[in-house]
Design a protein around this nucleic acid. Sequence first.
RNA 1: GCGAGCGUAGCACAAUGGAUAGUGUAGUGGCCUCCGAAGCCAUUGAUCCGGGUUCGACUCCCGGCGCUCGCACCA
Length: 584
Amino acid sequence: MSLPFNVANHLDTVLRAVATKLGLADRGFQPEVRVADPANGDYQANGALAFAKREKLNPRALGQQIVDQLGGLQEHFDISLAGPGFINFRLRPATLLAWLQTYDSEEHLQAGAASARRGQTWIVDYSAPNTAKQMHVGHLRSAVIGEAICRLLAFSGAKVIRDNHIGDWGTQFGKLIWACKRHLDATALAGDPLEEFERLYKLGTKAAEADPAVLAEAQHELVKLQTGDAENLAIWKKINDVSLAAFQVIYGQLGIRFDVSLGESFYNDKVARIYRELTECGLAQESQGALVVFHPEHPRFKTQPFIIRKKDGAANYASSDLATVLYRAEHFKVDGAAYVIDFRQSDHMDQLFLTTRKWFEKTGRKLPQLEHVDFGTVLGGDGKPLKTRNGENIRLKDLLAEARERAFALVSGKNPDFPEAERRAIADVVGVASVQYADLSQNRSSDYVFAWDKMISLEGNTAAYLLYAVARIRSIFRKAGLDTGQPPVAGATAPESPQELALARKLGKFSDAVQLATGTLRPHFLGLHLYELAGAFSTFYAADKVIVDDPAVRARRLLLCHRTLVELEAGLHLLGLRTDLERM
RNA sequence: GCGAGCGUAGCACAAUGGAUAGUGUAGUGGCCUCCGAAGCCAUUGAUCCGGGUUCGACUCCCGGCGCUCGCACCA
């Protein structure tokens, strides 16, 4: 028997078969296979405890009964019954070696993982900045988390559509066009066009606030735009083109590439159908002049309306989001849609999903799995949303530039002898990766404190610590005159020392980490695995010399080094980080 | 007011109802004649309060307290 990519799933399958044989399955036995604390083994099955309790059986006797049926697993596992009825599985060293020999590259790891969601189509809605404004720190999390989720879903076999649902339509364009027609600075526009549009946007907003006549003019410009006025449409298009080009620079640095950018304007001509359908199926009603949806069974949404058409007859983001769900279901035929949007919009998302569920049910449509991938706020050291000293939003381009500068200073301090161009290249990787990883290494649901010192200090669970492990492994190969692409690992023996074993066992948990991160749409589970892997490597590296004379020992330690490199890189790539550095 | 989320060592975080609540940082004490010390080893220190469910609760339920966010036409 060859060992499967995900050992826990294999154990689950075997245990279910045993449960069937023992007549437990039809009474609801669940194996409950979990990754175990290393002190207890590699995996544990907890199912006997709950089942025995429910069926009034002795849990240890039941556990023993199950263990007695697991003879076929003895080749690969040391199996024991422990405590009140835990079944512990410890992989044998030879099995660890076999697993490591099989999963020897990023491609093979992916091949192993790709069965989980084969045949599924997912659309991921992330980033979604508004045009005419610079991307700022508030846009960071959606972009970074969204990209990681796309990669995780694709890795587990899904077809993924990356959709940038940009805010390219709305009432702000009235004020903006008003300002463009009166205050455009051609020189500034030629220099940094987005900067100029942002200035005009602020100017237009202020002017409209101060003077009702301006507001009226701006509203007129908006109506002209909406009714297809050629001049206003041209300005609008110019603004969007300029904005997208500026966004693209940021996306390039973050390793993001979208498949489609279907912004709000794309859905302009699709909202009338929403009003009609929702009214016809009895979900929508008039209230205070607006078209709204109430949910009588819901404690809050029975009185808090979901406004899908404003009293002035215009669409809003609810109408547009409903049209978007329909388009994704009809045109892309998605099985799932993940919305990477901050937690403050939870009410909106709840109302959107609730309404969609009822609407699709009434119209006989298949409902995709709808997931709000929410996330908290990026905070400053004062515990408030991160801003500049004068209270402005921090621009993403400035933030990323500072990250690279700080990384450059650090690399230069550590390795002043590296050529400057190389130090720059290293800083580009380390700086951006540090920002990305600071976000991805913790549970997305909570707010997080943005602290340069912690994220680039290179201590603890940081990108630099992981990349340092990558650099050290490359260094071992380089110094020994070996190629990481052709590791000389023939004749490797099974891991022996405690540090080799700990590292090998950690390597085998990659699949569990990917599965957990993907299943929960929480990338930090993968980050945590990579951090623990890098730690296990550092411990191994300090304890066991790799380049030794004994060919078998040398081959197996090189094998461990190589697989650590492969997994660290595969994992970091899954999180959207670059790893292309030889040394740092 | 109603609703949602969050309260874990000085600080920053982790824990898919499981075994002795993990890690980083800060503190203390060790380790470079040896493949990179941006490292390794050891050690001090925590579940907001009160009930409940469970063989077992940071996790689930109820009630407090505290912080954050949302609540009619911005997205």
